[in-house]
Amino acid sequence: MRDFVLERPRSISQALEILKNHGEKAILKSGGTDVIVWLHKSLKEPDYLVDLTAIDQLRGIVMNDDNVEIRALVTLNQVIEDNAMNRYFPALVQACKAHSDPLIRNRATVVGNICAAVPSGDMIAPLMCYDAKVEIVGSRGIRKVPVSDFITGPKKTSLRQEEIVTGIRIAIPFVETSGCYLKAIRREALDIAQAAVCCTLHKGDSREFRIAFCAVSPRPLRAVEAEKLLNSSSVIDDSIIENAARLAADAVNPITDVRASREYRIDMIGELTKRAISICLRGPAEEGGPR
């Protein structure tokens, strides 16, 4: 690991100032579960490491009238333990539980997972389903970007050099809701997804399914065709589910690598989509089911 200067700003404005002064020589760190590994492997060699963990403004899950803010320093374990998150966003909670192990989840942040922007990031699919907006602050002010636009490719985001992600905002669904996150992995825990499916169901005036994927496309992806089929069908029976799963599998474009082949990933998307839909239909109490 090359030497660097550790900066610990106390406020967002201080952090922005540091970024402005050092430009490309600085990188941001919150939980550090990715950044420290990059430094160790010399994948990043910054002159300045800007540690955001002393900024109180970036802490906490904040409930507002019609939305919730997950601020930049919120760890996966904090999401898992939060009652409102469990009530309104069960798929996100499950994705947090499917991520790594309890120790890493104590450090890893939801925002960090989005900013790393690897296709296998577990937070991406649930935030796609929940239509989350990424809140970004820079010298030119605040901007809000949908997750789907924030991640522009593998390890690429629309975050600019002198900007910081302060949090993620999700609208609260004031209807009965269920959701799940199913992940194909190589062992029972602590693995990067071979493929994963997130499914949410809002049961308001009209029933609305949303489905998104993990690790099977370079950019975040919703299963538009599958959702259309489900949301236009008055009764959802096994054949509709089968067809939706097939549409889902048709929508993805995964790679073959050491973790899984393209073919296995596609098949798992079909299978997990089928299971995820059924779990959502069975109701909010359902805990994940078989991964």
């Binding site: 192990d101 062992r187 029972e188 825990a189 602590l190 693995d191 990067i192 690598d257 050491v258």
Partner: peptide, 24 residues
Amino acid sequence: MTYDEHGKLLTPDFTDYKIATIKD
């Protein structure tokens, strides 16, 4: 242990060389 066609080890660390966890 998995290699690519040039003999490069694709599973050099525990990210991709998987051993059983207590849950396994």
